[in-house]
């Protein structure tokens, strides 16, 4: 009797232990994926694990991550924002136009050349504005987020092309006489040897993680994604929350547009194309659910790292562009399958 009991108990203990290990493995799957990806490329590409390369990769990651952090808020409410890539493109073009052509105030008959901080501020406003427009379509006219933001994807891209007839704004170095130089420092500058976009990402990620996890606004975002009806009946102003998340996403996309244009010292109207897909992939890799209510900023950050490292690593190893796509797709699908598995176990 006693023996049998002990046996069962130890058996149960083992089963629990195994389940626990499995759950742990699943929980940290994105971190494991990141470690795995870094390890593989370190072996395959000798100069992969150098400081110089790490800094370049971090810069690329910053672009994906900032976009994805904005996207995270939208996805946490159960929405989606397809317009971010186009917003980034348009934002770069607006920045370029402001530096090269200035802001013509026709009523006063003058052309104002805003300083670089003012340019960034105006461009962010453009991003927020498009985000609010998305929010208007979704809240006021009950358009499904997928369609609403698909529409703005085309509109914003078209607007970017229209700004210069599809041409590039080159040489965005500004003019000392106009007091608008220094644009390139945002994307290409270094602080303590670390690229400025990486610093920006650090600040934004920390801020976003705090907002999502520790503020009433963050709580409401999760609530709307968990059950819009429950949120509504609890007195959450659901429409306000939705306006806010699309505005945040728009602002982050615009910032990414500025970073790219600044880094290249040129604004190209096609830049940022299909970035929305990288953003969504990073959020999903980070463990968020596309139906809303589940996911974290830290997860998104790690997801963006996986996307970034995978992309750069495959280029360094010399994998063909076509295989790169296949592998990236495979990683995303695997992540979602594991996520489903975790849901069932958890």
């Amino acid at each position: 009797m006693t023996e049998g009991k002990t046996l069962t108990m130890s058996g149960a203990g083992q089963a629990v232990g195994k389940d626990y290990a499995m759950a742990l493995l699943l929980k940290f799957r994105t971190v494991l994926a990141l470690v795995l990806v870094v390890a593989i490329f370190s072996v395959l590409a000798p100069n992969f694990l150098t400081v110089a390369n790490a800094l370049i990769m971090l810069k690329h990651i910053a672009i994906v991550a900032i976009l994805a952090i904005g996207m995270s808020f939208v996805i946490l409410t159960g929405g989606i924002d397809l317009s971010v890539g186009s917003i980034a493109g348009l934002a770069g073009m607006v920045a370029g136009a402001l530096i090269i052509n200035g802001l013509p105030l026709t009523a006063l008959g003058v052309v104002v050349y805003p300083s670089v901080p003012a340019v960034v501020g105006l461009v962010l406003l453009v991003g927020v504005g498009i985000g609010l427009f998305n929010g208007l379509l979704i809240n006021r006219f009950q358009v499904a987020p997928f369609i609403a933001t698909l529409g703005t994807l085309y509109m914003a891209r078209g607007a970017a092309m229209l700004m210069s007839n599809g041409e590039t704004f080159p040489n965005l170095i500004g003019n000392p006489a106009l007091g608008n130089e220094g644009f390139s420092r945002i994307g290409a500058g270094l602080l303590l040897g670390i690229p400025a976009p990486v610093w920006l990402l650090a600040v934004i990620a920390a801020g976003a993680a705090f907002v999502a996890g520790s503020t009433t606004f963050g709580r409401r975002v999760y609530a709307v994604g968990g059950s819009e009806r429950a949120a509504l009946l609890s007195g959450v102003r659901v429409t306000q929350v939705k306006y806010a998340v699309y505005a945040i996403s728009g602002a982050m996309a615009a910032l990414v547009g500025v970073l790219i244009a600044s880094d290249l010292v040129a604004a190209h109207p096609a830049s940022g194309e299909s970035f929305e897909l990288n953003g969504i992939a990073a959020v999903v890799l980070g463990g968020a659910s596309l139906t809303g209510g589940r996911g974290t900023i830290v997860g998104t950050l790690i997801g963006a790292c996986v996307i970034g490292v995978l992309g750069d690593g495959m280029v360094m190893v010399g994998i063909s562009e076509f295989w790169q796509m296949v592998i990236k797709g495979g990683v995303i699908v695997t992540a979602v399958v594991l996520d489903r598995l975790q849901e069932r176990l958890g």
């Binding site: 709580r219 999760y222 994604g225 949120a231 209510g293």
Partner: peptide
């Protein structure tokens, strides 16, 4: 009318 993704306290 509860949000299944959140904790009891939340």
């Amino acid at each position: 009318n509860l949000c299944p993704n959140l904790s009891v306290a939340e």
